[in-house]
Computed example of a mutant assay.
Amino acid sequence: MNIFPTQIEELILRTPHLSPHFQCVLDRQGRLDTLTVRVERRAEVAADAAERAGATLAELVKNTIGVSVAVDILAPDAVERSMGKMRRIVDQRPAAR
């Protein structure tokens, strides 16, 4: 199934305790691909409130896009920033043989 970062971003923007700084991390467990959304909490938001917002985001992704994702809540400024475009996709899957 194809998932676009803009779909995830739209859902993050609907979740007030989360910042728009995120990455989608692809991995593989056995024969299945997994997706983890790493997203920063807003600076003024307590960690426990941000964790609840992360659970809400996972539910939104499942209900809207139809896939299950893990959500990792990060501290503000934890997602790598660059001078150009932000790297939204981090592919950690092993290369095909």
Rank of each mutant, 00 (worst) to 15 (best):
V25Y: 08
V39G: 07
C24W: 03
Q92I: 03
E51H: 14
R97V: 06
V90W: 05
R88S: 02
M86W: 05
A95N: 10
L35D: 07
D77R: 15
V69Y: 12
V67A: 00
T36K: 07
H17P: 11
D48L: 13
I65C: 01
V25Q: 15
A50V: 04
A70N: 14
V79H: 02
E40N: 02
G66M: 12
L32W: 03
M86C: 09
I8P: 04
C24T: 11
T36V: 04
R41A: 04
F22Q: 07
L11H: 00
V67D: 00
D77L: 14
L74E: 12
S19A: 13
I73M: 03
T34E: 14
T64V: 06
G54K: 07
H17F: 06
L18Q: 00
A55L: 04
V61P: 02
R31P: 01
G66P: 08
R41I: 03
Q7H: 15
A78G: 05
H17C: 10
D72P: 04
A47R: 08
R38C: 11
A46E: 09
V45N: 07
D27P: 03
Q7F: 09
V69P: 06
P20M: 01
D72H: 09
T15C: 06
E9G: 08
L57C: 13
D48C: 09
P20D: 10
N2V: 12
L13D: 03
K85P: 02
P16T: 08
A49R: 08
L35W: 04
A47F: 09
V67K: 01
G30C: 06
A70G: 14
D91Q: 07
